[in-house]
């Protein structure tokens, strides 16, 4: 049994403690906004926040996050009000297929929490998510737009 606090709600799950957080989110909680891309923490599509820090949930066993505050893409907008990162994404028409964008937005949100006005070098170092459609140019513009907002 694992007790997790997800998007402010505490829930208990009867799962093997080694189950990756990603699959508990997707298959037990039903939050499918967090995506499976590679399963080995290389692509970033599964990025969530654990106590505010970005983590690739596909390699985090649930046992490691018990008692910690987990935020997923579904937990960003409160009452339908987009965060400034989401709004910048909308204004800049960032997503193409969109599959990697949950992870991208989570990684960027964590970056801006730490560095509210990131330089391009800070963006390059912090954002290592893969996007196969190739939205990077718009991602960079939207990060700067969100930082200005």
């Amino acid at each position: 049994m694992a007790r997790l606090t997800i998007n402010g709600k505490s829930q208990a799950f009867d799962v093997d403690p080694n189950t990756p957080l990603l699959w508990v989110l997707r298959e037990q909680v039903g939050l499918t906004g967090t995506k499976y891309g590679c399963g080995v923490a290389l692509c970033g599509a599964c990025t969530v926040h654990v106590d505010g820090a970005p983590m690739r949930s596909c390699v985090v066993p649930v046992s490691a996050v018990e008692g910690k505050k987990i935020t997923t893409i579904e937990g960003l907008a409160v009452n339908g009000r987009l965060t400034k990162v989401q709004q910048a994404w909308l204004d800049n028409d960032v997503p193409q297929c969109g599959y990697c964008q949950s992870g991208m937005i989570m990684a960027v949100t964590a970056l801006l929490d730490k560095s509210p006005k990131p330089t391009d070098a800070q963006i390059d170092a912090a954002i290592t998510n893969i996007c196969r459609c190739g939205t990077f140019q718009q991602v960079r513009e939207a990060i700067h737009a969100a930082a200005r907002a």
């Binding site: 997707r26 939050l31 499918t32 906004g33 997923t72 579904e74 989401q86 028409d93 997503p95 937005i105």
Partner: peptide, 18 residues
């Protein structure tokens, strides 16, 4: 602007895997 953006920002968009 694209017509299909908002749900891709909030996790609502359903792909085949979802």
């Amino acid at each position: 602007k694209r017509l299909d953006t908002v749900d891709k920002l909030t996790g609502k968009q359903v792909y085949g895997a979802d």
